[in-house]
Design a protein around this nucleic acid. Structure first.
Lengths: 125, 125
DNA sequence: ATACAATGTAGAGTAAACTCTACGTCAAGA
DNA sequence: TCTTGACGTAGAGTTTACTCTACATTGTAT
């Protein structure tokens, strides 16, 4: 019930190079088999999914790494990790609010353009 | 009623180097005075504000440049520019939806953590 | 046994968006 | 007049997050 790097690349959608890079950055640490090949577990799949979420919401690799290192230390770091998540939730809320503002402004601009174009085309009555 | 690059940097919050870089990328083309110094107008202020909005909503410089070049060509490009904005509005809506999904999942995760921490701390009754 | 595909490491290369350096010019105040 | 500070150009350097190359091993199918 584990995966080679090639298989894991398939199921996660991350490139093999990227997976090795993530390991180098201590985001994930698969076990190795007798011939030094990486073996990824089922848990690694959900972990990568979570990493992807953090990335998609603007968390830089450095900070994901900080989280990953805490996670690797086990339960004693639960509170600290939660603090990180709560911080990140706030930044995510702020991001969404910002984007909604931008959307509203863009909407205005588009409406204005529509006017402009009508005026422009109705020059010849 | 115009600005030197230093003044313009102040009012827009963009660095002088960045402004020159933007000019190099054809995002903005200030006029020059007799001694070749850039002169930015009031209009340039709102234009930079709009560029910032496009950037903040994930539009790459290359595409902003495409828009800027159309804008520089004048009214004949109004429709094409509007098409770009409408496209971008859609991508913005998609972005927001994605982030909201991520927020919901993060919320779940935090709730789960809260549980974990309670269990963990109540180990000693 | 042998070919060949997947994997390993180390390190170089890439793309985007700046950011900085070096060096020259020019206008204005002491 | 001299100097200082803002500005000019061209090009190098930085950061982030990959992505790729070169070359050595290893597992598997024939």
């Amino acid at each position: 019930m584990d995966y080679s790097i090639g298989e894991f690349s398939e199921v996660t959608g991350l490139g093999i190079h990227t997976l090795r890079y993530y390991e180098h950055e201590s985001l994930i640490t698969p076990v190795r088999n007798s011939s030094n090949r990486r073996r990824y577990s089922e848990k690694d799949i959900t972990w990568i999914a979570f990493i992807k979420r953090l990335k998609a919401t603007g968390m830089p690799i450095k900070e994901i790494k900080r989280y990953a290192v805490l996670r690797a230390k086990g339960n004693s770091t639960l509170t600290e990790r939660m603090e990180m998540l709560i911080q990140h939730r706030q930044s995510l809320k702020d991001q969404i609010k910002q984007l909604q503002e931008h959307e509203a402004k863009l909407e205005e601009k588009i409406a204005f353009y529509q006017q402009e174009i009508e005026h422009h085309c109705s020059d010849t009555p």
